[in-house]
Amino acid sequence: MTMDVIDYQVFGDDMQYVEVELDPGEAAVGEAGALYYMQDGIAMDTVFGDGSGRDDGVLGSLLGAGKRLLTGESVFTTVFANQSHGRRKVAFAAATPGKIVPVHLLELGGVLYAQKDSFLAGAKGVSLGLAWQKRIGTGLFGGEGLFFAKLTGPGRVWLQSLPLSRLADRIVAAAPRAGGESKEQGSLLGGLFSDKN
């Protein structure tokens, strides 16, 4: 399996985006809704599955889509291919505040287990699968869940450091409970989670 080796640069601080520069014929895959901008000459193609280019047939595609749903990802992936004669840029942004973490899978032995719904984009050819938490008690009570995203291939991927599921957990944990005698005296988030409503 071939991987596209692509240049990139991460911009921003708390609301980051990654700009990927594609040579003619190169492609990157992005999670549904992750596109920030792209230059003319980039063609978009929405595919069923992870966009790795493997031909697993209809049953394999359905199984792969089911795995993606369990890891919190969309069943569709968008492939961004440079069909021009020069270098072109496409950028991806996370939907939530946090950092974008670039990871070269080859440097980690070709396999990485990540928090579900943390995949943002990657080089075309990276496969996104499913890994099970082998100890059910750890999965249920350890706070990480039963499933992980399993990223395989020698290419580069960009992960969100704070996916939406974790951001929501942090907001709920940090929100003060409603204090005082009326809703106006407590905080907005505290009022949302108060038993007095």
Rank of each mutant, 00 (worst) to 15 (best):
M1D: 06
Q9V: 08
G12T: 08
D13K: 09
M15V: 06
E19G: 01
E19D: 03
E21T: 13
L22F: 12
E26C: 08
E26F: 09
V29N: 07
G30L: 07
A32T: 15
G33S: 12
Y36K: 10
Y36N: 11
Y37H: 14
Q39G: 11
D40C: 08
G41Q: 02
T46S: 08
V47P: 05
F48T: 02
L62W: 07
K67A: 13
L70V: 04
T71D: 02
G72E: 09
N82L: 04
S84H: 06
R87I: 04
F92S: 03
A93Q: 12
A95L: 11
T96P: 05
G98S: 03
V103A: 09
V103I: 15
L105E: 08
L105V: 10
L108P: 04
L108Y: 09
Q115P: 05
K116T: 14
S118R: 03
A121W: 03
G122V: 04
V126F: 04
S127G: 13
G129D: 13
G129T: 12
A131I: 05
K134D: 12
K134E: 12
R135A: 08
G139Y: 06
L140N: 03
G143L: 02
E144K: 12
G145E: 06
G145K: 08
F147N: 10
F148P: 00
G155F: 08
R156F: 01
V157W: 01
S161R: 02
L162C: 05
S165F: 04
R166N: 07
A168V: 15
D169L: 09
R170K: 14
A173E: 15
P176N: 02
S182V: 04
E184K: 12
G186W: 02
L188V: 10
G190H: 07
L192P: 01
F193E: 01
N197D: 01
